[in-house]
């Protein structure tokens, strides 16, 4: 299998006043194409920092990150914007839907940014909204939907452009338990279906169970890296 994400000797230091805070240190990690991977850690462990650097939202202090074979730590803002547009989908904890757009328009946004025609993108948008079970809600505004429904719109938005890599930051953090499982199931199903790489950051061990691979992070270091098969064997 080809590696989707290759991280070598990654280090990230924040400077707060006079003090140095080492958020990540000596992180080496490869994630394969099509792998569903969970980065698990407590608050302050550095898991979100790791995700942000994979997304190109933060620059590493040292080390390198390659996504699909390309060094993203060297890209400019404009290049990164284009790169994200082509290869990445995002799911956020607080959904981040645009309040003045309908569910369908929100879902279609990544395609709109790519300059795809209205007809084509709405076709794709309607299909993916049906996949997440929101067929009836395509013309609803975010304020007219429940949290779980909103997050499903968020998922549809991340998947609609069929990106090779999907990054989810605490995607179920604002949802109740029942909805959490539904939503996470949908995410993993979709990722499996299109053979996409999915990286979920969470502090919730129950969510981690849905992943093929769990990477435990603690104090900025990878503590444990276990695969589902191994876990099942134990």
């Amino acid at each position: 299998m080809t590696a989707m994400i290759e991280i070598k000797n990654l280090r990230r230091v924040y400077r707060i006043g006079q003090e140095k805070v080492i958020a990540l240190d000596h992180v080496d990690l490869n994630i394969d194409q099509g792998e569903i991977c969970c980065i698990l850690g407590t608050s302050g462990s550095g898991k979100s920092t790791l995700l942000n650097m994979i997304a190109g939202l933060e620059k590493p202090t040292r080390g390198e990150i390659k996504i699909g074979g390309r060094h993203i730590e060297k890209m400019t803002e404009a290049q990164l914007a284009l790169f994200r547009q082509k290869y990445m989908g995002f799911i956020f904890q607080a959904y981040y839907l645009l309040p003045n757009l309908t569910a369908l328009e929100n879902v279609c946004l990544p395609l709109t940014f790519r300059g795809i025609s209205r007809k084509k993108r709405e076709e794709a948008g309607k299909k993916i909204l049906a996949d997440v079970g929101l067929k009836k809600y395509i013309y609803h505004k975010p304020t007219e939907m429940s949290g779980g429904q909103q997050q499903r719109v968020g998922i549809a938005r991340a998947f609609v452009s069929k990106p090779r890599l999907i990054l989810a930051d605490e995607p179920t953090g604002n949802l109740d338990t029942a909805t959490t499982f539904e939503v996470i199931q949908q995410m993993t199903d979709l990722a499996h279906q299109y053979h996409q790489t999915l990286v979920i950051v969470t502090h919730d061990i129950e969510i981690a169970d849905f992943a093929d691979r769990i990477i435990h992070i603690r104090d900025g270091k990878i503590e444990k890296d276990e695969r589902k098969k191994e876990r099942e064997e134990i």
Binding site: A81, R84, Q85, F92, F113
Partner: peptide, 8 residues
């Protein structure tokens, strides 16, 4: 958000 979603 729109930056992350790929707006140039």
């Amino acid at each position: 958000v729109i930056k992350v979603l790929g707006a140039s």
